[in-house]
Design a binder for these strands. Structure first.
Lengths: 234, 234
DNA sequence: TCTGTTATGTTTGCTAACGAACAGACGTAT
DNA sequence: ATACGTCTGTTCGTTAGCAAACATAACAGA
């Protein structure tokens, strides 16, 4: 039983609960390490565990017939995987892949469902988060429709930074391209442009953010919009 | 008190309830006419009523800062407006505009919340629909990212047809363009192409679908994908 | 019938992003 | 050291869709 999570960081959703409620919930959780490349969720699978990251980053990826996977959002210690269980749906809708190693609290699906029913405070918090997730989906839908690649790339980099609290992101242009649903060449061009503006620099497999405010200005409104939605709701 | 809704058509979500449960729920509803252009929901407003269309079509529209409104989905008698109340969120996230006149059952927000808590069967059905709505959002996000305008237009026309059970759609190219988040000229071009393939024809303010199967083939996978999601879940 | 408004058609030039292919630079393992 | 795989840079030709402007056609009301 885990009573102290500070040694591994903590999950911001669970932090919104009262100490009592959180401790009780954590008693049903297990701390697991999540490792780069690990797949926590496969679309169509029955949900066995719900994850609350406390460190590291997980990508939430959608695939539609005839197209590759692309990243809907990144999930760090501000969120959870997967919310659909809140609605009583026990089938995973998306793929979740670890993009930065770390740790997560995980809880068996059945116990999670039980806890939701027992603890109104818990479902209150998580319902609000579910609403954030829906709004994020609408935001990225609009973003895909209206915003240029360079801005979308800037947005994605900021999302990484925000969730890792680090200015260095270990990722290749090819991976970024797949996340954004575009060609690698497109990312090379956009990243080159951001570098020329002295906002970022990169070498083989890692991107360094030099000017966060500049990058915010170069990104689309969606980064700030998502953050606002989260802060307003939670 | 409404005990018989057949005279006005019915709502497919409510039809999934047992007769008893539905009759009881409808007792709290009021049948109202919804008229072309009427705005049922404005983003940011407090939710006063929840609507269950029984006839007609409502568009669910999102706006992000710096860009115009575009249509996330169309809602007919297969759906409801707005689901966020299911999660206890009483602020409207999107704009809802009547695109085809008809009727809807409406229920005050407070009573709706009460009913949800009282009737597990009701919340079961609506939770499933909420999941459909989330998946639709992901689908349109991918659609905006990967699919060509002509296919997206075909998709939208099929969505209209499906919800109105009519091959004639009263709408201008300019309105279709706004819905899709593109220029009117783009729609003129795409619609011209669909017409040349003998799938549709159109005159001043109305589009007629001549070959539904051909139009399905010309549309993107998203139309069928959304229908499958709905049918699998409900 | 005339006139103003709305809907559709078409053009020109431009840009973002695509697909495909290739070259060089950097690591790492043998 | 060499060889191989991976990552990044660059090119060429193509296309979808943008922005703006203008032309035609249909309808509605005075």
């Amino acid at each position: 039983m885990l009573t102290n999570s500070t040694a591994f960081g903590s999950n911001r959703l669970l932090n919104l609960l009262t100490d009592n409620c959180r401790q009780n919930f954590l008693g049903h959780c297990e701390l697991v390490s999540i490792n780069l490349g690990e797949v926590l969720s496969n679309p169509g699978d029955v949900i066995s565990y719900v994850y609350f990251p406390v460190e590291g980053i997980v990508s939430w990826e959608k695939q539609i017939s005839g197209s590759p996977y692309w990243v809907v959002t990144l999930i760090g210690n501000e969120g959870m995987i997967c919310i659909s269980l809140l609605l009583g749906i026990n089938i995973r809708p998306c793929r979740a892949v670890v993009q930065k190693s770390g740790f997560a609290m995980r809880i068996p699906a059945a116990i999670f469902t039980q806890q939701i029913e027992l603890k109104p405070a818990l479902s209150l918090v998580l319902n609000r988060y579910a609403n954030v997730v829906y709004n994020q989906a609408l935001q990225i839908a609009a973003c895909n429709l209206f915003h240029l690649l360079e801005r979308r790339l800037a947005r994605l980099l900021l999302m990484f930074q925000h969730r890792s609290q680090s200015d260095e992101i270990h990722i290749t242009q090819d991976q970024l391209a797949k996340m954004l649903g575009v060609r690698r060449v497109g990312v090379t061009k956009a990243a080159g442009s951001l570098q020329r503006k002295n906002l970022i620099s990169y070498i083989r497999g890692s991107v360094i953010i030099h000017d966060m405010n500049g990058l915010k200005a170069a990104s689309c409104v969606c980064y700030e919009a998502d953050n606002s939605t989260y802060n307003d709701m939670m």
